[in-house]
């Protein structure tokens, strides 16, 4: 196995895991920020104010139409050009992924809140619960149950999409793999497939348990 030989040579494996750590830490930062902001954005999206709703609509369309890579270039190179602010690749990545994730998360929150039938609120009201109690015991638990599986799916999508950030110079797991392959080009030509296989495996062991949990929860709370 050429790939294994190459991986076990020098610090290659450690570097690869370090790259994975970069992928994961940036993803986690963006996911955490997205969830926090997304909850707020979701509330905004359910409001009746037309200006706020139009703004949210525009935001959503933007992140859905414009490829994430373009957004990354816009922030990383564009900010430097336009405002002379040179953001690091990592910072640009977190900004773009949060911009994307918060919008999508907001839309998920909006959908979950609006999918709770009005009757649920009314029958909780009819029981003499206060507004706060209605939210705490009836609306929020049901919203969260609908939200969590979808939010987890979004999170795995975000983790996978972080592979794009190597194009703005962040050395994450895929970039490390490429470097390793490049260095071994002369003495282990066949290593590439194997190393990409290892990267595949790394993404898999990170995302698979998450997807599995999402599926379980979805079934349990259906």
């Amino acid at each position: 196995m050429q790939a294994l030989d190459v991986l076990l040579k020098g610090r290659n494996l450690a570097r690869l895991l370090q790259g994975l750590w970069v992928t994961l830490s940036l993803s986690l930062a963006a996911i955490a920020l997205s969830v926090a902001l997304g909850l707020l954005v979701g509330m905004l999206m359910t409001m009746k104010n037309r200006a706020i709703r139009a703004f949210c609509r525009l935001w959503l369309e933007t992140i859905r139409i414009v490829p994430q890579l373009v957004l990354l270039f816009l922030v990383y190179f564009g900010m430097a050009k336009a405002f002379d602010i040179q953001l690091s690749g990592e910072a640009s990545a977190v900004i773009v992924f949060t911009f994307w994730g918060a919008g999508e998360m907001g839309d998920l929150v909006r959908g979950a809140v609006q999918s709770i039938p009005r009757h649920q609120t009314e029958s909780a009201n009819a029981l003499g619960l206060t507004r706060g109690q209605v939210y705490r015991y009836v609306i929020i638990p049901q919203t969260v149950r609908r939200l969590i599986p979808q939010a987890i799916n979004l999170a795995t999508r975000m983790i996978k999409t972080t592979s794009l950030i190597m194009l703005i110079g962040v050395v994450e797991v895929l970039k490390v793999a490429q470097q390793i392959i490049d260095n071994a080009r002369y003495d282990a030509l066949q290593a590439a497939v194997g190393i990409y296989g290892v990267v595949f495996f790394l993404y898999f062991i990170v995302c698979w348990p998450i997807s599995l949990a999402a599926g379980r929860l979805e079934k349990k709370w259906a």
Partner: peptide
């Protein structure tokens, strides 16, 4: 009591019954 079945789907029957008296 309304026409539509309006029990809280995330709680069992006892949970539905206890909510009003214990919280309100």
């Amino acid at each position: 009591v309304f026409q539509s079945y309006d029990l809280f789907p995330h709680m069992d029957v006892m949970g539905n019954l206890l909510l009003g008296p214990t919280k309100a």
